[in-house]
């Protein structure tokens, strides 16, 4: 029973990590690419960590909870690095007003 649950979390975790990376490879623009790794990859690694917790708790004497540390650390740091990457991109493109103007022009071109 526990083995079944472990396998379930492993498969879900692997799939979500893969989906996050697919999103990063597939989206056409940087700000959209940020969405994949910050969400899907975090849950993917979280699933694998839960599976590891279940596995080692069932194998050895006593609970094994130290994987929680990695999960918590990733949950705290993933948004921070995404925020920093977005800020550096805005900085490199010369401010948010420039980006808004450019995307507005592109939308007009699409319509005409």
């Amino acid at each position: 029973m526990l083995e079944l649950l472990t396998s379930f979390f492993l498969i879900v975790g692997g799939l979500f990590a893969l989906i996050g990376s697919i999103g990063m490879a597939r989206f056409p623009e940087l700000f959209m690419r940020l969405h994949g790794p910050t969400k899907a990859t975090t849950l993917g690694v979280g699933g694998i960590l839960i599976a590891s917790m279940l596995h080692f708790s069932s194998r050895e004497a006593g609970l094994s909870l130290h994987e929680l540390l990695i999960a918590m650390f990733l949950m705290i740091t993933a948004p921070v690095s995404a925020h920093l990457i977005a800020r550096s991109m805005i900085h490199l493109r010369g401010g948010i007003d420039q980006i808004r103007k450019k995307s507005g022009e592109q939308a007009e071109q699409k319509e005409t």
């Binding site: 990590a17 990376s21 994949g36 790794p37 975090t42 993917g44 990695i70 990733l74």
Partner: peptide
């Protein structure tokens, strides 16, 4: 992202 995946 590579770092996170390597952790996994």
């Amino acid at each position: 992202t590579m770092y996170i995946n390597t952790t996994a």
